[in-house]
C-alpha cells in the first residue's frame, strides 16, 4: 500500500524538527513570512507575544521585521524594553541562537545584544528593492548552508538601515570576522547600486562576539518561496534547520 501523502507543511510526527519562536511586538508585520520560511524547510514555528515573561521552549529565537511600537523614539528602542526581551537577552547570553531581521536587527542593537547603531538611510528615502549580499564569514548555525563568498539576492524594505559603528568598533568587527553579510553589486549592476542605505563598510549583517546572535537588515525570509522573486535564501534556512533539528 502506498504511504499516505503528507501535506507539505505538516510536521506532525517529526519530533526532532527544529522549533523557532518568533517574537511579535505591536507593529511587527513580517512574522508570518518568517514562519512560512521556516515551515517550508521542515521546521515548526510558534509566535511569542512581547508581553510574555518568557520565550517558549525552542531551538531558535527570531525577531522579525516590522515597525514595533511605531518606531517611537528610535527604531527598536521600545521593543528592546518590552517584558519578553529580558528573557531573550538572558537566553542569548546563555548561548541560544537568535536571529533578528530588519526591525529585529534594530531591536537587538537597542537591547545591546549587538554593537553599533542603525541610522536613517543616507538618502532619507524608504528603500524597498532587491539587493545582493555576499556572505563574508560563515557562522554556524545562523548562516545555514551558505558558503563564504556566496552572493544571494534578497529584498530590503527599511527606512533606517544605515549601519553605524565608530572606527574602533568597526576594526574589531572586521578583525574578529563578525561582519557576516555585505551589500555587493549584482550581476551587471554598477557598484554604486550595491549599498541601499549608506551603511558603513557596506555592512548588511553582523554577529555578536560569541556568534550566536545574528542581525541583518535584508529579508532572507522573503527569498524562500513561491511568488517571491528569489529562492536564494533557501540554503540559509535549510542549513539552520538541519543544524538545530
Amino acid at each position: 500500500m502506498d504511504a499516505p501523502v503528507q501535506p507539505e507543511h505538516d510536521n506532525v510526527g517529526v519530533e526532532s524538527a527544529m522549533k523557532a519562536a518568533i517574537v511579535v511586538f505591536p507593529g511587527t508585520n513580517r512574522e508570518v513570512d518568517m514562519k512560512d520560511a521556516f515551515e517550508r524547510v521542515g521546521a515548526s514555528a510558534v509566535m511569542a507575544w512581547h508581553g510574555d515573561a518568557e520565550v517558549p521552549d525552542c531551538d531558535l529565537i527570531v525577531l522579525p521585521g516590522g515597525f514595533a511600537y511605531g518606531d517611537y523614539l528610535r527604531c527598536g528602542a521600545m521593543a528592546a524594553h518590552s517584558p519578553i526581551m529580558k528573557d531573550v537577552v538572558k537566553k542569548a547570553n546563555a548561548g541560544q541562537p537568535v536571529l533578528g531581521v530588519c526591525n529585529g536587527f534594530q531591536t537587538l542593537i537597542e537591547a545591546r545584544l549587538l554593537p553599533g547603531a542603525l541610522l536613517k538611510n543616507a538618502s532619507l528615502a524608504f528603500v524597498c528593492r532587491d539587493v545582493h549580499l555576499r556572505l563574508e564569514h560563515a557562522v554556524k548555525p545562523l548562516t545555514g548552508n551558505l558558503a563564504e563568498g556566496d552572493v544571494i539576492r534578497v529584498p530590503v524594505a527599511h527606512g533606517d538601515g544605515n549601519y553605524f559603528a565608530d572606527a574602533e568598533m568597526l576594526k574589531r568587527l572586521e578583525g574578529d570576522g563578525r561582519i557576516v553579510f555585505r551589500y555587493v553589486a549584482g550581476p551587471g549592476e554598477p557598484d554604486t547600486r550595491a549599498n541601499p542605505n549608506g551603511s558603513t563598510a557596506d555592512i548588511a549583517g553582523i554577529v555578536n562576539d560569541k556568534g550566536n546572535v545574528l542581525g541583518m537588515m535584508p529579508h532572507p525570509e522573503d527569498a524562500t518561496g513561491p511568488r517571491q522573486q528569489s529562492l536564494d535564501a533557501v540554503p540559509l534556512f535549510a542549513g539552520i534547520v538541519e543544524a538545530l533539528s
Binding site: L73, R74, A77, F164
Partner: peptide, 9 residues
Amino acid sequence: QKLLANTVI
C-alpha cells in the same frame, strides 16, 4: 542611559 538616548550615536 537606559532609554532616552542611544549613547552610541
